[in-house]
């Protein structure tokens, strides 16, 4: 059975404990110029999770909401479909994990992910792809992921995906403040991390235009997210390489990240 995490955004106070726990547990660096919390944090190779302070509105009143982002651990992960080296694998317990020793550095996973999660270690001489591993080692031992366990307001509930989905349904049905949408129930064919909120997800920067069709395993249908690339392996490889390079350059120049 697949594990999952329900994130109730109405409870988040933006303390950032989760981002610190992730760095402590995974031995990731703190970088002064790319904070993991605040109004404009970025997912990077060292920030596997971030909490964005969103100054938005609810019922005409200004409200602040905090959005924790990390890999959603798709049930049918496009990143894994795209990776012909099988460096990305979906485990039985739920986590979509990454094996550095299998990675060839092509970065197709980065193109394939509809949520723009995998990040490349651009600064390293032997770069790898990085992303939240859902603390697969902890989950395998029956422990909650690091970020989940430190949250002072219990924003996150760790459990069997079907159980947390049922909890999410019950919560939004029994309390009128919630929007009637469980993000991740259907997005990208269903994800193991699911979200509920009292403010519409679009307002919080969630990408709401992702397909709800499951991405069939290893079908390479991830190409639908990269329409500029001409099909055909030879030109595809080159094209994608240049594309990612250009994208990186653009990203670095603009210093901005895209959607969830």
């Amino acid at each position: 059975m697949s594990k999952g995490v329900l994130v109730d955004l109405t409870k988040c106070i933006g303390c950032g404990s989760c981002t610190v726990a992730c760095k402590l547990y995974n031995d990731n660096k703190f970088e002064k110029d790319s904070p993991a919390i605040g109004e404009n944090p970025k997912l990077t190779d060292e920030n596997w999770t971030i909490v964005t302070a969103k100054k938005t509105e609810k019922d005409g009143q200004p409200v602040w909401r905090y959005v924790k982002q990390q890999c959603l651990h798709c049930e049918h992960p496009a990143c894994a479909s795209a990776c012909f080296a099988k460096a990305f694998q979906k485990t039985e317990e739920g986590p979509v994990i990454y094996y550095p020793h299998l990675c060839v550095g092509c970065r197709y996973c980065m193109l394939a992910c509809p949520f723009d999660i995998p990040k490349y270690q651009w600064e390293k001489s032997f770069p790898l792809v990085t992303k939240c591993q859902m603390c697969s080692g902890k989950v395998a031992k029956g422990e909650a992921p690091a970020c989940v366990s430190v949250c002072p307001t219990n924003v996150m509930t760790f459990g069997e995906r079907d159980e947390i989905l049922a909890l999410a349904k019950k919560t939004i049905e029994s309390d009128s403040k919630y929007v009637k949408h469980i993000y991740g129930e259907k997005e990208a064919g269903g994800t193991d991390w699911i979200y509920i909120s009292d403010v519409p997800f679009e307002q919080l920067g969630f990408r709401t235009d992702v397909t709800t069709t499951p991405l069939p395993e290893y079908s390479h249908s991830f190409l639908k997210y990269t329409p500029y690339v001409i099909v055909g392996w030879g030109s595809l490889l080159t094209g994608m390489y240049l594309y990612t390079k250009r994208r990186n350059k653009i990203a670095q120049e603009e210093k901005k990240d895209v959607h969830l």
């Binding site: 760095k23 995974n26 031995d27 591993q133 603390c135 080692g137």
Partner: peptide
């Protein structure tokens, strides 16, 4: 091994 989990809590 998969990536991650090399730190402490």
């Amino acid at each position: 091994e998969p990536m991650g989990g090399k730190g402490w809590l």
